[in-house]
Design a binder for these strands. Structure first.
Lengths: 162, 162
DNA sequence: GAAAGATAGTCCTGATTCTTGACTGTCCTG
DNA sequence: CAGGACAGTCAAGAATCAGGACTATCTTTC
């Protein structure tokens, strides 16, 4: 059997997660567009998904989302422009600003959560609650294990690589 | 409890697949770099992952990977430049060209497959063969179900939206 | 077998997203 | 209070993707 056919019958973890992520994002953002949020794009999720009603610092959003703070800055610019968040001075630290969702932003966050919950509920009904629960548990654990990956503690730090 | 804390304890399907994809890609391409392929990037996977030893047409690669054929064209340009594939005329169709992996390309494909297999084997050992098998089966099925998503056959095509 | 439409691959232009380095103002530690 | 760390921003460039258009070839249809 040709390799590509074998791969198509048993796609690896990377292909599967990539395809699933793409499809879930597609449903999420098309549905959000139908529900009054046609201008939010996947990249905005890096900020919106990690907000709190009382506000979060940009650096904290950067840490949580894995995006660099410059990216978070431009995303927040866009979301301010679109009316989803506003910047407020942080009373704790005059360098920092709190990113606070507006009412429109809270509506988007609520709807996005509901859409994702609906997607998961659909799959839960198709597979059965127990099977889906096991799946989700395994997925969480695998993501955690994969996070712990590092090739080596690098015994020779920047010595022979020139 | 604040929403972001709840989300961190029970991240949704989108966050989990996104994080896992990123982490798996990171391990894959860092390891490939250590194994003699420092110039392949994630985007090249859209071509390399779907090749066959006997060659595949660019349009077929576009269909399989979901990338537009312009993208596939530029990726093939890069891979030719890097010595991973070459273009051969398709004897069946003078418009078409077969994208054929070189020896170097086959080496990359083999190593990439092995790295992914090693990742999965690691998780399989951590979770147990049965649990991991169930997980992979569920993941395949959920990806298939999600592929079937469409909002509606659109009963009112472009009428009241202006 | 000639005309009409479909398909394979490429070119080009612009938008989007990310990377990198540097900079100002504020905080913290000794 | 001096030195370093940190929050956020500015700016330049690379990487990636989207869209329209074009040529050459194939396929269908009359």
């Amino acid at each position: 059997m040709r390799r590509s056919e074998r791969k198509r019958q048993d796609p690896d973890l990377g292909m599967l997660t990539g395809q699933l992520l793409f499809l879930v994002q597609q449903e999420l953002f098309e549905t959000l567009a139908e529900q009054g949020h046609p201008h939010v794009r996947p990249r905005h999720g890096a900020v919106l998904a990690y907000l709190d009603a009382e506000g979060v610092r940009a650096t904290e959003l950067s840490r949580r989302s894995g995006q660099r703070k410059q990216i978070v800055g431009t995303i927040v610019d866009e979301l301010v422009e679109l009316g989803y968040v506003r910047r407020e001075p942080d009373p704790q630290d005059r360098r920092a600003k709190l990113i606070v969702p507006t009412e429109h932003g809270i509506d988007e966050i609520t709807k996005a959560d509901a859409i994702l919950a609906a997607i998961e509920r659909r799959h839960e009904e198709a597979l059965g609650a127990e099977v889906y629960g096991d799946f989700k548990r395994a997925l969480r654990q695998i993501a955690r294990l994969q996070r712990a990956w590092r090739p080596e503690p690098s015994p020779t730090p920047r010595t022979a690589d020139h």
